[in-house]
Simulated assay, not measured.
Amino acid sequence: MRKLVLGSMSALLIATSLQANAQPDPEEQIIFRKAGYSFMSWNMGKIKAMAIDGTMAWDPAQVQAAANSIAATANSGMGALFTPGTEKSIGDTKTNVRPEMFTDMEGVGKVAMAFSKAANELAEVAKTGDKAAIIKAFAATGDSCKGCHDKYREKM
């Protein structure tokens, strides 16, 4: 488990350092941010399956790992992947972002901070293994996701 977390963190650090050296082009930015959100969604799904649905066996260590992955991704600086030129799909690379994401900086800042805070709280609560507290923090994290989706993501 520790190797998996350290390996994931290493990969994130490498990706971050590569991005710092060369800003990805707009199409790559869309691909990277979609991958980040998909990764967080997958981890949210694991927590949901264990804590809410009961379709996976309750494993506090796996919940903690998933919560840590969500928080790490939420705090990775993904906002840098929303630059001019990424507000529209490019070729086969689709984006569901609304134009308001690029003009409502105050609103975007609020939902981004709310999400980061909720993700960090989920990671902290997950350390305790307290299932009821995790469920509450998980719901708050999901609500923060919804806050952004409702305002800045096209309905599919």
Rank of each mutant, 00 (worst) to 15 (best):
C145V: 12
G129S: 14
A137V: 06
A119W: 05
G147C: 10
L122V: 01
C145Y: 04
T141G: 03
A133K: 09
V125S: 00
S144F: 07
K151E: 13
E121R: 03
S116T: 12
Y152S: 08
A126N: 01
A119K: 11
A126C: 05
A118Q: 06
D150K: 13
K117W: 03
E121M: 06
F138V: 08
V125T: 10
A139E: 14
D150N: 12
N120C: 00
A126L: 13
A133R: 08
A140M: 07
G147A: 13
A118I: 03
E124C: 09
E154C: 09
A123F: 11
A137I: 07
A132V: 10
D150C: 11
K131E: 07
F138A: 09
K151A: 11
K136S: 02
D150G: 00
K146W: 10
R153H: 09
V125A: 00
C148K: 03
F115E: 04
H149W: 06
T128W: 06
A123K: 11
K131N: 03
R153P: 04
K127G: 02
L122T: 02
K146C: 07
S116E: 14
A140Y: 01
E154Y: 08
L122I: 02
A140H: 04
K155N: 14
H149A: 07
C148D: 05
A119S: 15
A132Y: 00
G142R: 07
A140S: 06
K146M: 11
C148F: 05
K127E: 04
K155H: 07
K155A: 14
F115T: 03
N120W: 00
A123W: 11
A114I: 01
A114Y: 01
K136A: 04
A137D: 04
Y152D: 10
F138D: 10
E154W: 13
A118S: 08
K151N: 15
D130H: 03
A140D: 06
C145L: 09
F115R: 09
A123C: 12
Y152A: 13
A139K: 15
E124V: 15
K136N: 05
S116A: 12
F138W: 15
D143W: 02
S116F: 02
C145G: 06
A114P: 00
K146H: 09
A119E: 10
V125M: 05
A137S: 13
G129H: 12
T128N: 13
A123P: 04
T128C: 12
A139W: 09
K127V: 04
L122Y: 01
H149F: 06
T128K: 08
L122E: 01
N120D: 13
K117E: 14
A137H: 05
S116L: 14
Y152E: 11
K146S: 01
E154V: 15
I135S: 06
